[in-house]
């Protein structure tokens, strides 16, 4: 039975090795990227135009509620991306897979941009409803702190030069951050209810009429898909950058140049 064990062992190993190898990811993502991009674009257009143009205005907030189709997806994405960064960080620390660190490095700027967008859209949305540009609402404040966490990861990435240390230091920071997110959300929630007893929770999804709910769900799915597309584009660039010494990158670049 020994040969069987050997085959199984090598099989596992090659699969695991192949799964994690940047070259394999580069080729597979190259095939899938165009289709994903088209699908994301389609869904985003349908979701947002449906929400912007075809849904009736909200009885309470009038048309300003249409910002929800941009604010809620980006708010979800902002925390979802940080959690997936923490997962990538854990994989980097435990199995030291290079691809996981590339994912962590690529997700940071995307997450920051969405977190920033969620903050701005939330603030602008607050203006017509409460008359002030910034309101210390529980969710907006935790979103602001999440933005600090993102800046922390990006700043640490820039501050350490050696790639190996940089990867694992950011992984540790992201894991510490993700442990902290629920605590921050809880304490800001507690702090907010103590001081203000929030009137209308800004991003509380009011029990939405179906014709509002459907465009929202579509745009949420569209933004998640768009995140995947943006992540794949960034990771492919990152792979070319880090694997520039390998032959397959040279060939890919030459092939790219010719085609």
């Amino acid at each position: 039975m020994i040969w069987y064990a050997d085959i199984r062992k090598t099989m596992n190993w090659t699969f695991f090795h192949k799964l994690g190898s940047p070259k394999w990811f580069y080729e597979i993502s190259g095939k899938w990227l165009p289709w994903l991009a088209i699908l994301a674009a389609l869904m985003m257009v349908t979701g947002l135009t449906w929400g912007l143009l075809f849904t009736p205005p909200d009885y309470l907030q009038g048309n300003s509620y249409r910002i929800i189709f941009l604010h809620v997806p980006t708010a979800f994405l902002a925390s979802a991306i940080y959690v997936s960064m923490a997962i990538a960080g854990a994989v980097t620390l435990i199995w030291r897979i290079k691809l996981a660190d590339m994912a962590l490095k690529s997700m940071a700027p995307i997450g920051t941009s969405f977190c920033f967008l969620a903050l701005i859209t939330g603030a602008i949305w607050g203006k017509p409803t409460w008359g002030t540009w910034w309101v210390w609402d529980a969710r907006l404040t935790s979103m602001l702190i999440l933005l600090f966490l993102y800046f922390g990861v990006i700043a640490l990435r820039g501050a350490i030069r050696s790639a190996n240390t940089q990867a694992r230091a950011c992984a540790i920071l992201t894991l510490v951050g993700v442990v902290n997110i629920p605590i921050i959300k809880f304490s800001v929630q507690w702090w907010n209810t103590l001081h203000q007893g929030s009137t209308l929770k800004l991003t509380e999804k009011p029990s939405m009429a179906p014709e509002m709910l459907w465009p929202l769900l579509i745009s949420i799915a569209a933004f998640y898909l768009f995140f995947t597309v943006a992540l794949i584009i960034r990771m492919r660039t990152e792979i070319l950058d880090r694997e520039r010494r390998t032959k397959w990158v040279r060939n890919a670049v030459e092939a790219g140049a010719r085609s």
């Binding site: 600090f148 640490l156 920071l173 921050i184 809880f186 304490s187």
Partner: peptide, 8 residues
């Protein structure tokens, strides 16, 4: 790096 941990 430390501020977000200090907020709670």
């Amino acid at each position: 790096l430390s501020l977000p941990l200090y907020i709670p």
